[in-house]
């Protein structure tokens, strides 16, 4: 195996890091040079990762335009080698990269919008979960309610921003009006990413709802989560929140905690 490992490692360095190819790599036909062949592989490497990013970040691409996105993507690829054979895993670090990417500094909301898009991308491919069965909930007696722990859909994500990123995301949705008006100064938001009927959706949460859901996400039982939330937000409405989260397919199951 050692020879194969050396051969492939060197070829990988040639493609990813631009190293000179070893002489054992030959093209024995005269139609083109070795450099042309190596450049085809380098181009495939960059192009496949660029396309993966374009697939994961369609809203960012629309916001900045194709040329700028291409430049952003190629710079990102230079600094972030692929680590998975599944291209859908590529690009998790793009939001951080955008935040520090000098040419994008004028667009303060871009990094948070990218964070939201990555959450949507992950939600799109997340594993399936059963639909919530209310009869299952009905089985528990009132004195068991404080100890209930909810299962959440694997697609569920919460993204906070100082900017109206949910509105920005929704404005680029296929169903949205072509023209949109968003004022960046319209304020912060807490975006909830979820999936129902196999479709990724983004809705806004209030502070109390987000506070409660954060605890539910860490499997804190219903009693504790609700009481802590009410201490901080006396006007928190548990029933409205439960209905909303069941409707949005965020809550998918319930069990008695330990």
């Amino acid at each position: 195996m050692t020879e194969l490992i050396d051969q492939l490692s060197h070829f990988a360095q040639t493609i990813v890091q631009g190293k000179e190819p070893k002489t054992q790599i030959t093209n024995c036909y005269a139609n083109y040079s070795q450099n042309t062949a190596i450049e085809v592989y380098r181009n495939n490497y960059r192009g496949n990762l660029h396309d993966a990013l374009a697939g994961a970040y369609p809203v960012i691409k629309l916001l900045v335009g194709d040329d700028f996105f291409r430049m952003l993507a190629l710079k990102f690829i230079e600094h972030n080698p692929s680590r998975s054979a599944n291209l859908h895993h590529y690009g998790a670090e793009l939001p951080d990269f955008v935040a520090s990417f000098e040419p994008a500094q004028a667009l303060a909301y871009l990094s948070d919008t990218a964070t939201l898009e990555w959450a949507c991308h992950c939600a799109y491919f997340a594993n399936d979960a059963p639909l919530f069965n209310l009869a299952q909930l009905a089985q528990f007696a009132p004195d068991q309610h404080p100890y209930l722990v909810f299962d959440l859909h694997p697609a569920t994500r919460i993204v906070r921003s100082l900017y109206p990123i949910s509105a920005i995301w929704l404005a680029h949705h296929p169903d949205a009006e072509v023209d949109f008006q968003i004022d960046l100064n319209s304020g912060s938001c807490i975006a909830l990413v979820c999936r129902r009927f196999n479709k990724v959706e983004v809705i806004n949460l209030s502070e109390p709802e987000a506070y409660w859901l954060h605890q539910i996400l860490t499997e804190t039982p219903l009693g504790g989560s609700t009481m802590t939330t009410l201490e901080h937000y006396p006007d928190f409405n548990l029933q409205t929140t439960l209905v909303k989260l069941v409707e949005m397919n965020v809550i998918t199951g319930v069990k008695l905690g330990a």
Binding site: K61, L62, L63, V64, G65, D66, D67, F68, F69, P103, A104, A106, L107, A108, Y109, L110, I168, A171, H172, D179, F180, Q181, I182, D183, L184, N185
Partner: peptide
């Protein structure tokens, strides 16, 4: 950047 970002007021 030359995309829809131009449509975001105060952006």
């Amino acid at each position: 950047p030359k995309g829809t970002c131009n449509k975001i007021a105060n952006g």
